[in-house]
Simulated assay, not measured.
Amino acid sequence: MSIKKKFGLGIASAALGLSLVGGGTFAYFSDTEVTNNTFAAGTLDLSVNPKTIVNVDNIKPGDTMLREFKLVNNGSLDIDDVLLSTDYKVTDAKGNNVEDFGEHIRVNFLYNADKDSVPIFSKTLKDLKDNYSDMNSPDVIIFWDEFWNQFFNGYLAPGTDDTLYVQFEFVDNGQDQNQFQGDSLQLEWTFNATQTEGEER
């Protein structure tokens, strides 16, 4: 065999060896698995039934109005607190008011029959409007005593409701209240629901 053929055969053998070595570096077992993960946020959905708690006319000093309504959790998360904020607007029929009609409409009580709580007791609408902030609003679903909250559910679970009773009174102060004849007061109660604390999931 000539030197030229031997040289050519040597180069071919070397190339084949390199290809085997190179190809061998990828000759191993492998497997792949893909995970599919989901983070789905829950919902807070509080409703009041009925939407209008009280709607009366021709009231006079001394009248009381007892009403029942429900707070309903239509969401998927527990509701920890339901904080109540108060606002109202007075329509002065004769333009002669020297006092705020809201000072003469009193909430004698607001009682949650399912939580045995009285978050509001003997407060005028003006008191509730002026003296309660977001940080100091009454919680209408908490038990009256923190001790009982340790053993019973002081929250509103999904798909459940709490029944509340409220009594309003047009207070007869024994004085001339003629300035309020024909007046009306539009009360807006806002129930603000908050979630329970986060937990390990």
Rank of each mutant, 00 (worst) to 15 (best):
Q175M: 10
W148F: 12
D116I: 02
D130E: 14
E68K: 15
K60Y: 03
D116C: 01
D176E: 11
S76Y: 00
P158G: 08
V34K: 03
N74P: 08
R201T: 07
N36D: 14
Y155C: 01
K60A: 06
G75M: 06
F170H: 07
T91F: 08
R201A: 12
T43W: 00
G22L: 14
N178K: 03
E199K: 15
K129I: 02
G42V: 00
L18R: 07
I53E: 01
L164D: 05
V56D: 10
S19K: 10
A41G: 12
D80G: 14
F69C: 04
G174W: 10
N153A: 14
T35W: 06
M65R: 15
N37K: 13
K60E: 11
G23D: 07
N96M: 02
K89W: 02
A27D: 15
S2D: 15
G198P: 01
T124K: 08
R106M: 10
Y111E: 07
K115E: 02
M1H: 00
L71E: 07
D161P: 01
V72Q: 11
G42L: 00
L71Q: 12
S137I: 00
L18A: 15
T32A: 13
E200D: 15
E146H: 03
V140Q: 02
F109D: 06
N192C: 04
D183F: 04
T163R: 15
G95C: 09
K4V: 12
G102L: 05
D31M: 08
D172R: 08
N192S: 15
E33W: 03
G198R: 11
L164Q: 04
G17L: 15
D80Y: 13
D176V: 01
A93K: 15
Y165F: 15
